[in-house]
Amino acid sequence: MGGICCVELIPVLGDHALHAATGGLLDEALADPEYLVLADPDRLVPQLTHATTPQARLAAAVYRHSRDHHTHATPDLRRRRLAIDAARYNAPTLRDALNHRTPAGTWAPAWSTGSNTSPALLDVLTGHTDWVRSVACTVLDGRPTAVTASDSSVRVWDLTTRTCIDAIPIHAGAVAVIEDRLIIITGPDIALFHPNPRSSDPERI
Score class of each variant (00 low, 15 high):
41 P>M: 06
52 T>S: 12
31 A>Q: 05
85 D>L: 10
43 R>W: 02
25 L>Q: 11
93 T>D: 04
60 A>C: 10
54 P>Y: 12
18 L>H: 04
51 A>Y: 05
20 A>T: 08
66 S>E: 08
71 T>G: 09
108 A>N: 05
108 A>S: 13
65 H>I: 11
49 T>K: 13
97 A>Q: 00
72 H>W: 06
17 A>F: 07
29 A>N: 02
80 R>D: 09
84 I>F: 03
86 A>S: 11
59 A>R: 02
61 A>T: 11
87 A>Q: 04
106 T>K: 01
39 A>F: 02
71 T>E: 12
95 R>Q: 10
84 I>N: 00
79 R>A: 14
58 L>Y: 06
45 V>A: 09
41 P>G: 03
45 V>I: 11
65 H>P: 03
93 T>S: 11
17 A>W: 04
97 A>H: 06
85 D>R: 04
39 A>S: 13
100 H>Y: 14
69 H>K: 11
59 A>Y: 08
41 P>C: 09
27 D>K: 07
77 L>I: 14
45 V>L: 05
58 L>M: 13
71 T>K: 02
23 G>R: 03
41 P>F: 02
21 A>Y: 03
54 P>E: 15
108 A>D: 09
53 T>S: 13
15 D>I: 13
49 T>E: 07
19 H>M: 15
13 L>P: 02
35 Y>N: 00
87 A>E: 06
107 W>F: 13
44 L>C: 09
14 G>T: 13
43 R>H: 05
63 Y>E: 05
31 A>I: 02
12 V>F: 06
64 R>N: 15
54 P>T: 14
57 R>Q: 08
87 A>W: 01
73 A>I: 02
105 G>T: 12
26 L>T: 05
101 R>P: 12
108 A>W: 00
15 D>V: 13
38 L>Y: 11
107 W>N: 07
28 E>V: 03
54 P>K: 09
79 R>Y: 07
76 D>E: 10
94 L>S: 06
89 Y>G: 00
34 E>K: 01
28 E>T: 07
94 L>W: 03
99 N>C: 15
